[in-house]
Design a binder for these strands. Structure first.
Lengths: 135, 135
DNA sequence: CTGTATCCTTAGGGATACTG
DNA sequence: CAGTATCCCTAAGGATACAG
């Protein structure tokens, strides 16, 4: 199904994000693709938040529907799919980094996240390039 | 109730935002406070998305609980509360601007939002100063 | 292991009545 | 008008069985 914003509650950019990827799970999958180098169903399943299999299937499909993620047969193992961010998904990077920076003020972070935020505040472009180089 | 992240699903900055203000309504209230100059219950009610009164009450209380919004008796009219962003709420500005910029690529925007995004991409600091000057 | 489907409980939230 | 409370229905999602 094509995800147009035609029947959204409003035409508002904040609302657009909320209605496409604004639930309690979707952005965690984006995070795993963007920062953790994950690409497979089983890898997403293993994340700390404990997503269940039916929800994961549903969100991966919705992410594909709204053009944030691609799905393709994995070349090395035809029984599974390889998930990747589209350019639309990749362009969420500044949003994700600003969310990280905001939360860092109030949440306990892992050392890896602390280092990320510190470097991002010092030299945002370097962080962006570094992350992009892993895609 | 104090909103600590102690019993969250994980310690992850993305998850922190999702569990504190990551539902389908909360960020719209933040938007109204941040960009639309709204400060009162009835003003939030009038937004295009059509939030209902019970949900609005609930979200305003949760925003207060997690330290994003303050509530105080309105000096001009003691029958209502005046809502404002705290510094924690104000520091969501870069997140909100990046969300707006992302959605602008895919959603139809109002002329006002188009102008905001255009100016933000040209001179982010100017946009930030301008918005802050309204707080 | 990669997903999908089903069952069932709970949380989200719309409509609306109600109080100050 | 500002805000709360209740009623009730639907969507979200956990557990888990199942198929390839």
């Amino acid at each position: 199904m094509d995800q147009s914003s035609a029947n959204f509650r409003s035409h508002c950019p904040i609302n657009y994000l909320l209605e496409t990827i604004g639930d309690k799970w979707t952005l965690l999958i984006v995070r795993d693709l963007m920062f953790k180098g994950k690409h497979y169903f089983g890898e997403f399943l293993k994340s700390d938040e404990g997503i269940s299999t039916n929800i994961l299937t549903d969100r991966l499909n919705k992410l594909e529907d709204c053009g944030v993620v691609t799905k393709q047969i994995d070349a090395d193992n035809a029984t599974r799919q390889l998930y990747n961010l589209t350019s639309k998904g990749q362009s969420l990077l500044p949003v994700m980094l600003e969310i990280t920076r905001w939360s860092a003020q109030f949440d306990e972070l892992t050392n890896a996240d602390k280092a990320l935020v510190k470097l991002y505040e010092k030299d945002p472009q370097q962080v962006i390039e570094k992350i992009k180089s892993n895609w």
